[in-house]
Design a protein around this nucleic acid. Structure first.
Lengths: 349, 349
DNA sequence: GTGAAAGCGCTAACAT
DNA sequence: ATGTTAGCGCTTTCAC
């Protein structure tokens, strides 16, 4: 374990010169220093460097669930940008819990130069304290009601409206939603977008068709079970994220409910395996890898120029990927609203 | 940004006393210290602590691909064990590349107290240097040919044999494999197990039915395309991991090849969506979350007692999950080996 | 361009 | 049980 002084001695310069060489400055005895470093296998002690200079050459990305392919993709995008640069990427997980998030962030403080964060809730004060403490923070996928903050998001409202409109066009009137937590950005926005598009088209959504869930597969599963237990089932359902879509589809499968004949399903977030499913899932798709890449670039900018600035908010577009899990309702539905303006009821595709 | 001296002054003790309080020792002016810490919002500077004491209270897990659900599950398992304890978990990605692995490890050195590693290759010298440098290392899913090292693995050979036997029992004789890289533990072991079980049963596997791939979805896809382009297609294929199974199935789907009627497929590693697939995938399943949990516990033990010890090697069992993607070959196959000892040819299930 | 010296915030030895 | 002292390895003035 060689120190900078060992290198200095061996190459007959001072420690300061070695330090300058390390940071890329031109040095007279450059070759000698380089050789000494190689021979001794010298690696600067990160802790000493951090302590003295205050920089860590590390960025953290904190997400609610590494198991969620969407967040895995975001991480991939960040890595592709950070690769080759001086910053390492650390990944931490909060399991959708504000308390865990607090602990995780506490462990991160003083170890990283910036945090890319998908906060557990919009009302979290953990992130605010970070921003207040002057640590660069970029929000990804989710941000705070209190904003404004630097963030890269997607058009959740537009996507949810797209989903609603798609179901309406197919002729559905008894429509359900399995929603994420309303205290998260995507949970709230997708809920509001979906419901507003429905009511704006003169189609009310029954309270019993609104399932508040948790963005987890298990949550989607039990929510769908509840919907299926209703005396009058809905003819279509919108699942507000990928994991809940999977859970809902499993419940449908277990209960032998045919998709889309008996129940149309549309999800938010694409599934890698969607094309191979018995009933390939129709989804609202969004650029996930790119979301991570943009977040990483924003962080790099923040790090390069820490001066106060007008917070930047990037919103990426979404698109409808129509597959086979949605179709016109087959059986007669008890339409509580007879007319959708501009949409001939029952028109498919 | 309060230091330990600020706390010391405010609570009228020395810095050393505050330090002792922080590490849990009993202190006379305990309440005063606690209060000062709260009022000042004191957080020990991790860098200073690390520099002085040499401990970081951090563990890294380094995997080839965070996007792979298997590794995501391993990480989950580690987190569940580490949660609540003093150690943070950092996750890093190597993209199946030894060079990237070297860089990643270099960045980790001097920042973490131990590394849980799934090395890119078995012949890697990166890990060996870590072990030699005295940094606690636990190998997960993959280890080194040079061993012995602490590791938690699964019974790859047994699993691959199980897969082969399953196909043989169904009556397949023209059997293909889409293998992972032979310079990785699971790549090599699954290949050897599969081929040995076949040849041991008197069934040779044709060279053209052996596809060497890369554990990636794209690799599985193009390998399957090549198998399908053969003048005499195999009637069954074993995919050595989850991602390649997905790729292979997508190729089959794109080429309109019916599974299992025209091609039986068995994979290694379960897929979350398997039950919802048009042809639910038969797989060799293994405990993935538990693998991570065990690795974390081994690391904790290493950290608690760094004394030299006999390397421990845990091997977890696997099981066959039979679904619908495997069946007896339908069309007459050009059997190059007529008799399998003990197995009535063509007997299914 | 280079070296000497100081010190980042903490903990470990030693003394009390 | 507590304070004093020293120093972990590095970067950064400040002189030259």
């Amino acid at each position: 374990v060689a120190t900078i002084h060992d290198v200095a001695k061996r190459s007959a310069v001072s420690a300061a010169t070695v330090s300058r060489f390390m940071r890329g400055e031109r040095v007279r005895r450059e070759d000698a220093v380089r050789q000494a470093i190689a021979e001794l296998g010298y690696r600067p002690a990160a802790a000493a460097r951090s302590l003295r200079s205050g920089v860590h050459y590390a960025i953290a990305v904190v997400v609610p669930d590494v198991t969620n392919p969407f967040f895995a993709a975001v991480v991939k995008g960040m890595e592709s940008v950070l690769r080759g640069g001086p910053y390492s990427l650390f990944l931490a997980n909060t399991d959708e819990s504000s308390e865990l998030e607090r602990d995780v962030i506490a462990h991160l403080l003083g170890r990283v130069d910036g945090i890319v964060l998908a906060p557990a809730t919009e009302h979290d004060d953990n992130p605010q304290r970070l921003v207040a403490a002057g640590l660069p923070v970029v929000f990804v996928d989710r941000d705070l009601v209190d904003g404004p903050v630097d963030s890269v998001l997607v058009d959740n409202i537009g996507g949810a409206r797209l989903a609603a409109r798609h179901l309406l066009q197919l002729g559905h009137r008894d429509v359900a939603i399995i929603s994420g937590p309303l205290n998260t950005t995507p949970g709230r926005e997708r809920y509001e977008g979906f419901v507003n598009e429905l009511t704006g088209s003169g189609v009310d959504i029954a309270k019993r068709y609104i399932e508040m869930s948790d963005f987890r597969e298990s949550g989607g599963y039990s929510s769908m079970l509840r919907l299926l237990a209703l005396p009058e089932r809905p003819s279509a359902v919108f699942c507000a994220n990928n994991l809940m879509s999977i859970g809902a589809l499993k419940a449908l499968d277990d209960m032998r409910v045919d998709v889309p004949a008996e129940m149309s399903v549309i999800g938010f977030d694409d599934l890698d395996l969607a094309p191979l499913m018995r009933s390939p899932l129709t989804v609202i798709d969004r650029p996930s890898v790119e979301q991570g890449a943009i977040a990483a670039r924003m962080m790099l900018n923040l790090l390069a120029d820490p001066a106060p600035h007008r917070p930047q908010r990037v919103v990426l577009p979404v698109q409808l990927l129509q597959r086979a899990s949605t179709s016109a309702p087959s059986r007669k539905t008890t339409s509580r609203s007879s007319h959708v303006p501009g949409l001939p009821a029952g028109s498919a595709r």
